[in-house]
């Protein structure tokens, strides 16, 4: 291999490749770096267009300002609560269905799969969903976020593929010992599925953490918003964030605040990301095998 790779053309290619990929890295990371730099910068520096990769006029003031807003903390706590509850329910529902779908001998299995897969390609649409959720009385409640998204068909298929790949000997042995289906699922299958369960929890948790539209659509009380809606209202200029602290620096304080809020919204994901990234990749691969 090495000898072939020594050609001049290939050497040039390698240099170009390195340059291109470095460019990709820079472009990918730059917005993050810039927003972090802004979040620590003095408002005048931002306004003058001086903030680039590093904070200018380093200050914690904006963080203190955002942290002093009780609505921000309420909304942040809401996000945590919604994420935990929604993920728990989604895991329960998805595991049950995926486990059943993985039983090849089961009569009606194809129909059950079809029921789920069809919804990937055709959905009721925004308006009927809106009417449904409203008439169920879910507006301004956590259920409007949690229940309509309790099963992601993609995650379901990933899990099903995993369960199908498991050796059945242990389950059969347990069944012969008189263990019922629930026992087998809880005591035999799930303990052996920690990897896929972790992946699924992460998939769901990230998607619920990031979700905003359901809350935006169905919630009207600001103390119920998740932090993503708080942020949305900030960037859309619809909250008090822009008018509080009425002095000459209004506009730039708002820019600062946006940056800080974005950083704080993303931080939990950035912190766990390096450790859990491989699980995500595994999950996608599992899904791709049997997509």
């Amino acid at each position: 291999m090495v000898t072939v790779d020594r050609t001049r053309g290939y050497q040039i290619f390698r240099v170009i490749n390195t340059l291109v990929l470095t460019g990709v890295l820079v472009v990918t990371l730059y917005p993050f770096v810039n927003i972090v730099a802004r979040s620590f910068s003095d408002e005048f520096a931002i306004r003058a267009g001086k903030v680039n990769l590093f904070p200018v006029g380093f200050t914690f003031r904006t963080y203190e300002y955002v942290a002093s807003d009780p609505t921000f903390w309420t909304n942040y706590r809401n996000t945590v609560v919604y994420t935990v509850v929604a993920t728990a329910i989604a895991m329960f529902m998805t595991t049950c269905y995926a486990y059943v779908l993985s039983k090849r001998h089961l009569k009606g299995r194809k129909i059950l799969i079809g029921i789920a897969v069809f919804t990937m390609f055709f959905s009721g649409g925004l308006i009927p969903n809106y009417i449904l959720i409203s008439s169920l009385g879910f507006t301004n409640s956590i259920w409007s976020i949690v229940l309509p998204n309790a099963i992601s068909v993609f995650n379901l298929l990933v899990m099903k593929a995993f369960f199908e790949g498991m050796p059945t000997d242990l389950e059969e042995a347990a069944a012969i010992d008189g263990m019922n289906t629930y026992g087998i699922l809880l005591r035999i299958v799930l303990p052996l599925s920690k990897a896929v369960l972790a992946t699924m929890v992460l998939f769901y948790a990230v998607s619920f953490w990031n979700s905003w539209f359901a809350a935006f659509l169905y919630m009207s009380q600001s103390d119920l918003f998740p932090v993503t809606v708080y942020l949305r209202n900030l960037i859309a200029g619809a909250t008090t964030g822009t008018s509080v602290g009425a002095d000459a620096t209004d506009l730039t304080v708002a820019t600062n605040i946006k940056s800080v809020t974005m950083v704080l919204t993303v931080i939990p994901i950035l912190v766990v990301y390096p450790f859990v990234q491989r699980y995500f990749v595994k999950g996608v691969m599992l899904g791709a095998v049997k997509g």
Partner: peptide, 14 residues
Amino acid sequence: FLSMVVVAGLVMEL
């Protein structure tokens, strides 16, 4: 892994 709101925010800031 970013929320769409954050992406939109980044775009607007950039």
